[in-house]
């Protein structure tokens, strides 16, 4: 059964395995998810709610793509770049996807070093992640500018269904906002890690609770989620 106070994820408590363990946890007192700190539980539930938002956006996009009578522009032509005289479809998107997925890797490493209390490595990896994220947003801005120059507007575009532009700006904009918020969070947390706030248990920002290295993992959860959503946007908007 449960042992000492476990607000930090140090050692796992020994519990029955498998389904029995799940039932035991749920029918126990105090916490339904043992060893899950409050902030992490909160982030998971928030992400569940956010999943519904993105699902609604993507389903709506698919519905209007189907309801409009005008042909849909061909994404591989629209999102192509001419590099060195050669027209390469989806090249920018491919790079952006690659960057974002790499940033998930650096984020995961930051979480690991966070729990090892290696402040320097954690902070640096978080900064790298933030840099990847910022360059993603930068490329997105470049893509928006390019499309706007070519005449794409939320209400119309030169190649076909106006819903193309509407959905594009709406969905990538909403996702890009998520990435930007993530970058800001990463920077803020990296600064606190660097300064050692979590060793001295200084009160956190956005909360009056004491902070600890779980916040790195919580930020990581959000970051991985944003990456995962991008994979769906990539598949459903660009590849379809």
């Amino acid at each position: 059964m449960a042992q000492a106070a476990m607000t930090e994820t140090a050692e796992p408590i020994s519990r029955p395995d498998g389904l029995r363990g799940i039932v035991a946890d749920f029918s126990s007192d105090q916490r339904a998810f043992k060893n899950v700190p409050w902030g992490k539980a909160m982030m998971w539930i928030f992400l569940l709610s956010d999943t519904f938002i993105f699902s609604c956006f993507l389903l709506s996009y698919m519905t209007v793509r189907w309801s409009t009578e005008v042909p849909w522009p061909n994404p591989s032509e629209v999102f192509s770049l001419t590099i060195g005289g050669q027209n390469i479809p989806l090249i920018l998107i491919a790079i952006m996807t690659f960057i974002l997925i790499s940033s998930s890797g650096t984020m995961a490493m930051a979480v690991k070093f966070g729990y090892a209390r290696d402040r320097k490595k954690t902070a640096i990896l978080m900064l790298v992640t933030a840099a990847f994220g910022a360059s993603f947003v930068g490329m997105q801005a470049f893509e928006w500018t390019k499309l706007i120059h070519e005449g794409v507007r939320p209400w119309g575009n030169p190649w076909g269904a106006p819903q193309f532009g509407s959905s594009f700006f709406l969905i990538t904009g909403f996702h890009g906002t998520h990435v930007s918020i993530g970058v800001i969070f990463l920077l803020a947390i990296a600064r606190k890690v660097w300064r050692g706030d979590y060793d001295s248990q200084r009160k956190g920002f956005f909360t009056s609770r004491k902070g600890n290295y779980e916040i790195v993992e919580i930020t990581g959860l959000y970051w991985h989620f944003v990456d995962l959503v991008w994979v769906f946007i990539f598949a459903l908007f660009y590849l379809w």
Binding site: I45, L48, S49, D50, F52, I53, S55, C56, F57, S60, V64, T68, P154, W155, P162, Q163, G165, S166, L170, F174
Partner: peptide, 25 residues
């Protein structure tokens, strides 16, 4: 509420686009 309000949120945002930007969701 956490799972249902997202649908209203999305609906409200898209209708706002339709009204302000002239999109046709």
């Amino acid at each position: 509420a956490l799972l249902a309000f997202p649908a209203l949120f999305v609906g409200a945002v898209m209708m706002m686009f339709d009204r302000l930007l002239g999109t046709s969701f």
